Simulated assay, not measured.
Amino acid sequence: MNEAHILLIDDDRDLAELLGEYLDAEGFRLSAAHSGEDGIQELARGNYDLVLLDVMMPGIDGFETLKQIRNTSVVPVLMLTAKGEETDRVLGLELGADDYLAKPYSHRELLARIKALLRRIELDRAQKESDTGTLECNGVTLNFDTYEVECEGQTLPMTTSEFKVLRVLMTRAGKAVPKEDLYREVLGREIMAYDRSIDMHVSNVRRKIQTVTEDPKIQTIRGIGYLFVEAS
């Protein structure tokens, strides 16, 4: 992806300036908004490939900003959370963030996460070109043309990451899929110690499916990963 356009929503103006210089040297273009309200408006005006979203901001915080973004956009969102605040990371993923990074972070670490998410976008585009039609298993249907998910005939709202979790699990229905595979295929990066991103995406999918049916679709295979249950 050439000169990906990234939107930083963070009230720290000094950080925005330094990060802009660093990412520019790495071949990216960064625009900044310094409040949640301004960030939402800027995202609606521009054509952005990725959003970096800080949790702690005056006015509406990062969580409320993310809620409003997800009402209209599936743009990948990387949440920037306080170090050690697991509740922030969990809530961000529950609200539709694709990944998170705890502050303080190094520019190199942030760059690695950005590249991983952008690689995922490229893979998504290639996958969409090769995947057409639908995939159905055990009452769940994925529509590759519209990126919609139906369960027992009802359409369920899913983020891009949640759709990809289902795609990976359903294409291997009846087989345990290691978490390492899910990290590579869904988030475009390797699993890290104490990282619960995929667990939260799977939990979100389960919760949404359970609004329609109590029939368990995804099983946890302890010590390995997850399995999508084939219809009996």
Score class of each variant (00 low, 15 high):
residue 182 L to S: 00
residue 164 K to R: 15
residue 66 L to R: 00
residue 182 L to C: 04
residue 192 M to P: 00
residue 128 K to Y: 06
residue 129 E to K: 13
residue 32 A to S: 14
residue 184 R to H: 10
residue 184 R to G: 11
residue 198 I to F: 07
residue 90 V to N: 07
residue 45 R to F: 08
residue 156 L to R: 08
residue 72 T to H: 08
residue 173 A to M: 09
residue 202 V to M: 02
residue 79 M to L: 15
residue 214 E to T: 14
residue 138 N to K: 11
residue 29 R to N: 13
residue 6 I to V: 15
residue 227 L to C: 15
residue 82 A to F: 04
residue 45 R to Q: 13
residue 106 S to D: 03
residue 98 D to T: 07
residue 79 M to D: 07
residue 124 D to W: 04
residue 30 L to M: 12
residue 33 A to I: 04
residue 148 E to R: 12
residue 58 P to F: 05
residue 69 I to H: 00
residue 78 L to W: 05
residue 42 E to L: 13
residue 92 G to F: 07
residue 185 E to T: 06
residue 94 E to F: 02
residue 6 I to A: 11
residue 168 V to Y: 00
residue 9 I to W: 05
residue 208 K to C: 09
residue 32 A to D: 11
residue 171 T to D: 07
residue 173 A to R: 14
residue 191 I to Q: 13
residue 82 A to L: 09
residue 49 D to A: 15
residue 136 E to C: 05
residue 111 L to F: 09
residue 189 R to V: 03
residue 100 Y to V: 13
residue 174 G to L: 10
residue 182 L to F: 01
residue 62 G to N: 05
residue 52 L to F: 04
residue 20 G to L: 10
residue 232 S to G: 15
residue 12 D to S: 10
residue 98 D to H: 13
residue 18 L to A: 12
residue 167 R to V: 01
residue 38 D to T: 09
residue 71 N to C: 02
residue 185 E to F: 06
residue 11 D to S: 12
residue 179 K to I: 12
residue 171 T to E: 13
residue 168 V to W: 01
residue 33 A to C: 11
residue 25 A to P: 05
residue 62 G to S: 07
residue 185 E to R: 11
residue 228 F to S: 01
residue 207 R to V: 02
residue 77 V to P: 03
residue 213 T to V: 10
residue 102 A to L: 05
residue 159 T to K: 01
residue 202 V to Q: 05
residue 82 A to I: 02
residue 85 E to D: 15
residue 5 H to W: 01
residue 211 T to V: 09
residue 12 D to V: 03
residue 89 R to G: 01
residue 77 V to Y: 00
residue 54 D to C: 07
residue 171 T to P: 00
residue 230 E to N: 12
residue 55 V to E: 08
residue 92 G to L: 00
residue 117 L to C: 08
residue 106 S to C: 03
residue 160 T to A: 14
residue 210 Q to P: 01
residue 105 Y to A: 06
residue 27 G to H: 04
residue 169 L to D: 08
residue 221 I to R: 09
residue 88 D to H: 15
residue 36 G to F: 00
residue 217 K to P: 09
residue 174 G to R: 14
residue 118 L to K: 08
residue 142 L to N: 08
residue 56 M to V: 13
residue 82 A to M: 06
residue 174 G to W: 03
residue 170 M to K: 06
residue 29 R to V: 12
residue 77 V to E: 01
residue 60 I to N: 05
residue 190 E to D: 11
residue 175 K to S: 14
residue 182 L to W: 02
residue 166 L to K: 08
residue 2 N to Y: 13
residue 64 E to P: 06
residue 171 T to C: 07
residue 106 S to F: 00
residue 131 D to S: 08
residue 62 G to P: 05
residue 58 P to A: 09
residue 9 I to S: 02
